[in-house]
Amino acid sequence: MKLYDVELASRLLLGSARYPSPAILADAVRASATEVVTVSLRREAGTQRSGQDFWSLIRGLGVRVLPNTAGCHSAKEAVTTAKMARDIFHTAWIKLEVIGDADTLQPDVFGLVEAAAELAADGFEVFPYTTEDLVVADRLLQAGCRVLMPWGAPIGSGRGLNNGFGLRALRAHFPDVPLIVDAGIGRPSHAVQAMELGVDGVLLNTAVAMAGDPVAMAGAFARAVEAGRAGFEAQPMEPRDLAVPSTPVAGTAWLA
């Protein structure tokens, strides 16, 4: 998978929030074999540069850091946070979140497009957290995004893919744009479903961090993502209404 000219072997991206401890986070990252870890500036450490301890732990994981603007409710706030993230993590990558509704935490797609355009013009490589809406996706691409991160379901809800049809349509319309399903994945089976649809990768956090055994769950998701991708590439059969025996019936004796 290639995200902004970076070739990645793993199609799983992992969030770094809400783990029982940094040690468990580090073990989970290893077990997931992920190469990209997202980190929030606001949620975890406030706006001050006082989260240095935690951020150096993240840097020490030896993976690529994808800072995010989680918790931002306006384009302006998200742009400011993105710039701060670039200074702290020395990366042009930014996972752009502009939250539009406090209850569902769904993206404010208008603010998202606005912030994406401003950041892309400023040299950022933007990973926009968006809905599965085709028109919004198109605007994000026009704004300069080269990756799309449609949601599966609201953040932290663990509900899986709320709109498989929408994600399929997105895939069909933008066959060459990397699609990462971000948010809503609760179980490994959800990740398999997403990957079987043909999306390029999956980003998740709560499903691993809040599991009883986050390290084991990280391993389970790694295998789920691989299985889903392999299933997609192997071109699955289409469901049929009529049962088809896998061994020929001709010539076998009918015992009534």
Partner: peptide, 11 residues
């Protein structure tokens, strides 16, 4: 619970 060593006042 915040991953921060700041003693600044509560937000």
């Amino acid at each position: 619970l915040l991953e921060s060593s700041s003693h600044d006042p509560m937000t």
